[in-house]
Simulated assay, not measured.
Amino acid sequence: MTAAAQALAQRGLTPKLGIVLGSGLGALTDDLDQPVAIPYAELPGFPEIGVAGHGGQLVLGHLNGLPVAALAGRKHAYEGDPAAMKVPIRTLKALGADTLLVTNAAGSLREDVGPGRLMAITDHINMLGSSPLTGPNEDEIGPRFPSMRDAYDPQLIRVLRKAAKAEMIDLAEGVYLATAGPAFETPAEIRAFRVLGADAVGMSTVPEVILARHAGLRVVGVSAITNLAEGMGGEELSHEQTLRNAHVAARDLVRLVERFAGELDDDT
Protein backbone atom coordinates (compact mmCIF):
# COMPACT_ATOMS: atom_id res chain seq x y z
CA MET A 1 0.00 0.00 0.00
CA THR A 2 1.32 3.47 -0.87
CA ALA A 3 2.03 5.94 1.92
CA ALA A 4 -0.78 8.11 0.53
CA ALA A 5 -3.22 5.18 0.67
CA GLN A 6 -2.27 4.47 4.28
CA ALA A 7 -3.01 8.08 5.18
CA LEU A 8 -6.30 8.10 3.26
CA ALA A 9 -7.49 4.75 4.66
CA GLN A 10 -8.02 6.51 7.98
CA ARG A 11 -10.78 8.57 6.33
CA GLY A 12 -13.01 5.47 6.42
CA LEU A 13 -14.16 5.50 2.78
CA THR A 14 -13.42 2.59 0.43
CA PRO A 15 -14.05 3.82 -3.12
CA LYS A 16 -15.36 1.45 -5.75
CA LEU A 17 -14.79 3.91 -8.58
CA GLY A 18 -11.78 6.11 -9.21
CA ILE A 19 -12.18 9.09 -11.53
CA VAL A 20 -9.54 11.21 -13.28
CA LEU A 21 -10.86 14.65 -14.21
CA GLY A 22 -9.33 16.38 -17.23
CA SER A 23 -8.93 20.03 -18.20
CA GLY A 24 -11.95 22.11 -17.22
CA LEU A 25 -13.90 19.06 -16.03
CA GLY A 26 -13.55 19.46 -12.27
CA ALA A 27 -17.22 20.45 -11.80
CA LEU A 28 -18.07 16.82 -11.12
CA THR A 29 -16.64 17.11 -7.61
CA ASP A 30 -19.33 19.69 -6.79
CA ASP A 31 -21.95 16.93 -7.01
CA LEU A 32 -20.30 14.53 -4.57
CA ASP A 33 -22.19 13.86 -1.34
CA GLN A 34 -20.23 14.81 1.81
CA PRO A 35 -17.02 15.48 -0.11
CA VAL A 36 -13.65 15.45 1.58
CA ALA A 37 -10.93 17.21 -0.43
CA ILE A 38 -7.24 16.59 0.20
CA PRO A 39 -4.66 18.66 -1.73
CA TYR A 40 -2.09 16.61 -3.62
CA ALA A 41 0.60 18.47 -1.66
CA GLU A 42 -0.54 16.62 1.48
CA LEU A 43 -0.32 13.16 -0.12
CA PRO A 44 3.13 11.51 -0.33
CA GLY A 45 4.21 10.86 -3.91
CA PHE A 46 1.40 12.83 -5.55
CA PRO A 47 2.53 15.24 -8.29
CA GLU A 48 2.54 19.00 -8.24
CA ILE A 49 0.01 20.29 -10.78
CA GLY A 50 1.15 23.11 -13.03
CA VAL A 51 -1.48 23.40 -15.80
CA ALA A 52 -4.50 25.72 -15.69
CA GLY A 53 -7.81 23.88 -15.40
CA HIS A 54 -6.41 21.10 -13.19
CA GLY A 55 -7.29 21.51 -9.52
CA GLY A 56 -4.68 19.31 -7.86
CA GLN A 57 -6.70 17.59 -5.15
CA LEU A 58 -8.16 14.19 -4.34
CA VAL A 59 -11.85 14.34 -3.47
CA LEU A 60 -13.55 11.48 -1.61
CA GLY A 61 -17.32 11.16 -1.44
CA HIS A 62 -20.39 9.43 -2.85
CA LEU A 63 -21.82 9.88 -6.33
CA ASN A 64 -25.36 8.63 -6.81
CA GLY A 65 -24.79 6.38 -3.81
CA LEU A 66 -21.49 4.95 -5.04
CA PRO A 67 -18.28 5.60 -3.04
CA VAL A 68 -15.79 7.33 -5.33
CA ALA A 69 -12.37 8.95 -5.25
CA ALA A 70 -11.86 11.70 -7.81
CA LEU A 71 -8.44 12.90 -8.92
CA ALA A 72 -9.13 16.55 -9.76
CA GLY A 73 -6.07 17.21 -11.86
CA ARG A 74 -3.36 15.25 -13.62
CA LYS A 75 0.30 15.80 -14.46
CA HIS A 76 1.08 15.36 -18.14
CA ALA A 77 4.00 13.60 -19.80
CA TYR A 78 5.05 16.91 -21.40
CA GLU A 79 5.72 18.28 -17.92
CA GLY A 80 8.71 15.99 -17.69
CA ASP A 81 7.70 12.69 -16.11
CA PRO A 82 5.63 10.10 -18.05
CA ALA A 83 5.13 8.17 -14.81
CA ALA A 84 3.94 11.16 -12.74
CA MET A 85 0.48 9.63 -12.19
CA LYS A 86 1.85 6.29 -10.95
CA VAL A 87 1.29 6.98 -7.25
CA PRO A 88 -2.23 8.47 -7.65
CA ILE A 89 -3.47 5.57 -9.79
CA ARG A 90 -1.93 2.94 -7.53
CA THR A 91 -3.34 4.72 -4.50
CA LEU A 92 -6.86 4.36 -5.91
CA LYS A 93 -6.24 0.64 -6.34
CA ALA A 94 -4.79 0.32 -2.82
CA LEU A 95 -7.84 2.09 -1.36
CA GLY A 96 -10.11 -0.56 -2.86
CA ALA A 97 -11.24 0.81 -6.23
CA ASP A 98 -11.69 -1.80 -8.94
CA THR A 99 -12.73 0.56 -11.75
CA LEU A 100 -11.17 3.73 -13.16
CA LEU A 101 -13.05 6.28 -15.23
CA VAL A 102 -10.71 8.60 -17.13
CA THR A 103 -11.83 11.87 -18.70
CA ASN A 104 -10.08 14.40 -20.89
CA ALA A 105 -10.58 17.37 -23.15
CA ALA A 106 -9.82 16.43 -26.75
CA GLY A 107 -9.89 17.69 -30.30
CA SER A 108 -12.14 15.86 -32.75
CA LEU A 109 -10.87 14.37 -35.99
CA ARG A 110 -14.44 13.81 -37.14
CA GLU A 111 -16.50 16.65 -38.56
CA ASP A 112 -19.70 14.99 -37.28
CA VAL A 113 -18.47 15.13 -33.67
CA GLY A 114 -18.00 18.80 -32.88
CA PRO A 115 -17.32 20.93 -29.78
CA GLY A 116 -19.53 20.20 -26.80
CA ARG A 117 -20.02 16.50 -27.64
CA LEU A 118 -18.87 13.57 -25.53
CA MET A 119 -17.03 10.54 -26.93
CA ALA A 120 -16.68 7.17 -25.23
CA ILE A 121 -13.13 5.94 -25.78
CA THR A 122 -13.08 2.47 -27.32
CA ASP A 123 -9.29 2.21 -27.76
CA HIS A 124 -6.20 4.39 -27.91
CA ILE A 125 -3.06 5.02 -29.94
CA ASN A 126 0.03 5.95 -27.93
CA MET A 127 2.10 8.56 -29.76
CA LEU A 128 3.70 9.91 -26.59
CA GLY A 129 6.98 8.16 -27.31
CA SER A 130 7.08 6.91 -23.71
CA SER A 131 5.47 4.57 -21.21
CA PRO A 132 4.88 5.05 -17.46
CA LEU A 133 6.11 1.46 -16.98
CA THR A 134 9.60 2.09 -18.33
CA GLY A 135 12.26 0.84 -15.91
CA PRO A 136 12.27 -2.08 -13.47
CA ASN A 137 8.89 -3.76 -13.11
CA GLU A 138 7.19 -3.81 -9.73
CA ASP A 139 6.03 -7.43 -9.77
CA GLU A 140 3.83 -6.99 -6.72
CA ILE A 141 1.76 -4.43 -8.69
CA GLY A 142 1.43 -6.14 -12.06
CA PRO A 143 3.14 -8.12 -14.84
CA ARG A 144 6.17 -6.97 -16.82
CA PHE A 145 4.15 -7.12 -20.06
CA PRO A 146 0.50 -6.20 -19.34
CA SER A 147 -2.04 -6.89 -22.06
CA MET A 148 -3.84 -3.88 -23.53
CA ARG A 149 -6.31 -5.89 -25.59
CA ASP A 150 -9.35 -4.61 -23.72
CA ALA A 151 -7.77 -1.49 -22.26
CA TYR A 152 -11.23 0.11 -22.29
CA ASP A 153 -13.52 -2.52 -20.80
CA PRO A 154 -16.32 -3.55 -23.23
CA GLN A 155 -18.78 -4.24 -20.41
CA LEU A 156 -18.16 -0.82 -18.88
CA ILE A 157 -18.65 0.81 -22.28
CA ARG A 158 -22.04 -0.89 -22.45
CA VAL A 159 -22.93 0.59 -19.05
CA LEU A 160 -21.79 3.99 -20.32
CA ARG A 161 -24.01 3.64 -23.39
CA LYS A 162 -26.96 2.73 -21.15
CA ALA A 163 -26.32 5.76 -18.95
CA ALA A 164 -26.09 8.07 -21.99
CA LYS A 165 -29.35 6.74 -23.36
CA ALA A 166 -31.10 7.27 -20.03
CA GLU A 167 -29.86 10.86 -19.89
CA MET A 168 -30.60 11.45 -23.61
CA ILE A 169 -26.95 12.34 -24.24
CA ASP A 170 -25.69 11.88 -27.79
CA LEU A 171 -22.58 9.85 -26.97
CA ALA A 172 -20.12 9.30 -29.80
CA GLU A 173 -17.54 6.49 -29.69
CA GLY A 174 -14.04 6.33 -31.07
CA VAL A 175 -10.29 5.93 -30.75
CA TYR A 176 -8.27 8.46 -28.75
CA LEU A 177 -4.74 9.30 -29.85
CA ALA A 178 -2.29 10.82 -27.36
CA THR A 179 0.54 13.08 -28.51
CA ALA A 180 3.43 14.29 -26.39
CA GLY A 181 2.57 17.99 -26.71
CA PRO A 182 2.65 20.62 -25.40
CA ALA A 183 2.44 22.17 -28.87
CA PHE A 184 -0.82 21.57 -30.67
CA GLU A 185 -0.69 19.31 -33.70
CA THR A 186 -0.04 20.52 -37.23
CA PRO A 187 -2.67 20.07 -39.96
CA ALA A 188 -0.39 17.49 -41.61
CA GLU A 189 -0.15 15.50 -38.37
CA ILE A 190 -3.92 15.54 -38.05
CA ARG A 191 -4.28 14.17 -41.58
CA ALA A 192 -1.81 11.41 -40.68
CA PHE A 193 -3.64 10.60 -37.45
CA ARG A 194 -6.90 10.22 -39.33
CA VAL A 195 -5.23 7.67 -41.62
CA LEU A 196 -4.07 5.80 -38.50
CA GLY A 197 -7.70 5.48 -37.37
CA ALA A 198 -7.89 8.12 -34.64
CA ASP A 199 -11.17 9.90 -33.89
CA ALA A 200 -9.92 12.33 -31.22
CA VAL A 201 -6.55 13.69 -30.15
CA GLY A 202 -5.17 14.95 -26.85
CA MET A 203 -2.09 15.00 -24.61
CA SER A 204 -3.10 12.83 -21.66
CA THR A 205 -4.99 9.77 -20.40
CA VAL A 206 -2.92 7.00 -22.02
CA PRO A 207 -0.32 6.84 -19.20
CA GLU A 208 -3.07 6.52 -16.60
CA VAL A 209 -4.79 3.77 -18.56
CA ILE A 210 -1.54 1.82 -18.89
CA LEU A 211 -0.89 2.20 -15.16
CA ALA A 212 -4.45 1.16 -14.32
CA ARG A 213 -4.39 -1.94 -16.51
CA HIS A 214 -0.98 -2.90 -15.12
CA ALA A 215 -2.47 -2.73 -11.61
CA GLY A 216 -5.57 -4.72 -12.55
CA LEU A 217 -8.10 -1.89 -12.65
CA ARG A 218 -10.88 -2.00 -15.21
CA VAL A 219 -11.03 1.19 -17.28
CA VAL A 220 -13.67 3.23 -19.05
CA GLY A 221 -12.98 6.60 -20.68
CA VAL A 222 -14.79 9.69 -21.97
CA SER A 223 -13.42 12.57 -24.04
CA ALA A 224 -15.10 15.97 -23.87
CA ILE A 225 -14.72 17.35 -27.37
CA THR A 226 -13.57 20.97 -27.23
CA ASN A 227 -12.69 21.72 -30.85
CA LEU A 228 -12.19 20.35 -34.32
CA ALA A 229 -8.54 19.43 -34.74
CA GLU A 230 -6.08 21.77 -36.45
CA GLY A 231 -6.83 22.25 -40.12
CA MET A 232 -10.47 21.23 -39.74
CA GLY A 233 -11.94 24.42 -38.24
CA GLY A 234 -11.54 28.16 -38.58
CA GLU A 235 -10.40 29.08 -35.05
CA GLU A 236 -6.72 28.91 -34.08
CA LEU A 237 -6.32 26.42 -31.25
CA SER A 238 -5.48 27.56 -27.71
CA HIS A 239 -5.70 26.26 -24.16
CA GLU A 240 -8.21 29.01 -23.39
CA GLN A 241 -10.46 27.61 -26.12
CA THR A 242 -10.03 24.13 -24.66
CA LEU A 243 -11.11 25.26 -21.20
CA ARG A 244 -14.01 27.32 -22.53
CA ASN A 245 -15.53 24.47 -24.52
CA ALA A 246 -14.69 21.87 -21.86
CA HIS A 247 -16.96 23.75 -19.46
CA VAL A 248 -19.79 23.43 -22.00
CA ALA A 249 -19.26 19.68 -22.40
CA ALA A 250 -18.88 19.28 -18.62
CA ARG A 251 -22.59 19.80 -18.12
CA ASP A 252 -23.39 16.60 -20.00
CA LEU A 253 -20.35 14.84 -18.54
CA VAL A 254 -21.55 15.39 -14.97
CA ARG A 255 -24.96 13.92 -15.79
CA LEU A 256 -23.39 11.00 -17.65
CA VAL A 257 -20.94 10.09 -14.90
CA GLU A 258 -23.59 10.40 -12.19
CA ARG A 259 -25.89 8.03 -14.06
CA PHE A 260 -22.95 5.70 -14.80
CA ALA A 261 -22.09 5.55 -11.10
CA GLY A 262 -25.68 4.63 -10.29
CA GLU A 263 -25.73 1.87 -12.91
CA LEU A 264 -22.30 0.46 -12.05
CA ASP A 265 -23.27 -1.87 -9.20
CA ASP A 266 -26.30 -3.21 -11.06
CA ASP A 267 -24.56 -3.99 -14.35
CA THR A 268 -21.02 -5.08 -13.50
Rank of each mutant, 00 (worst) to 15 (best):
I157C: 12
V220H: 01
D267K: 09
Y176K: 10
G22W: 00
A27D: 12
A163Q: 00
G116P: 04
K93Q: 11
T134Q: 13
L8T: 07
D123W: 00
L217I: 07
V51A: 03
D153R: 03
V68K: 07
G174A: 07
A9P: 04
P39D: 11
K165Q: 14
A70I: 10
D31Y: 15
P44T: 01
I89R: 04
F46Q: 00
V20G: 09
T134G: 11
E173R: 06
V195Y: 03
S108G: 08
G135D: 06
G181S: 08
N64F: 09
P143Y: 04
T226Q: 03
P154Y: 01
P207W: 12
K86Q: 13
D123A: 07
A41C: 06
T91M: 04
A84P: 00
G65K: 09
D266V: 15
T103Q: 01
G216H: 02
Q6W: 09
R194W: 02
S131M: 01
A151K: 04
P44F: 01
K16G: 11
E111V: 13
I210D: 07
G96L: 10
D30H: 14
S147H: 09
M232F: 12
P39F: 11
G114Q: 11
L160A: 10
V113N: 05
P39W: 11
Y176R: 11
A180N: 14
A224S: 12
T91I: 04
L253E: 08
G197R: 09
Q57Y: 10
H62K: 13
D98N: 13
S204N: 12
L13V: 14
F184P: 07
A27R: 13
P39I: 08
A229S: 12
E258S: 15
H76L: 13
M168H: 15
G135N: 06
H214S: 08
T2Y: 03
A163P: 00
A250E: 13
H54I: 01
E140F: 10
A84F: 00
P115S: 08
L243W: 08
E258L: 11
H76Y: 11
T186A: 08
L237V: 05
P132E: 04
D98W: 08
A200L: 10
A106Q: 00
K165A: 14
L100H: 05
P115R: 07
I210G: 08
A83H: 01
P39E: 11
M85Y: 08
D199H: 13
A188Y: 07
A192E: 13
R255C: 10
L109C: 11
K165L: 14
G80Q: 05
A52T: 15
P143N: 03
G107T: 01
N137S: 14
G114W: 05
R255Y: 10
A164Y: 02
Y40H: 08
A27T: 10
G80N: 05
V87Q: 06
E167I: 06
M168D: 15
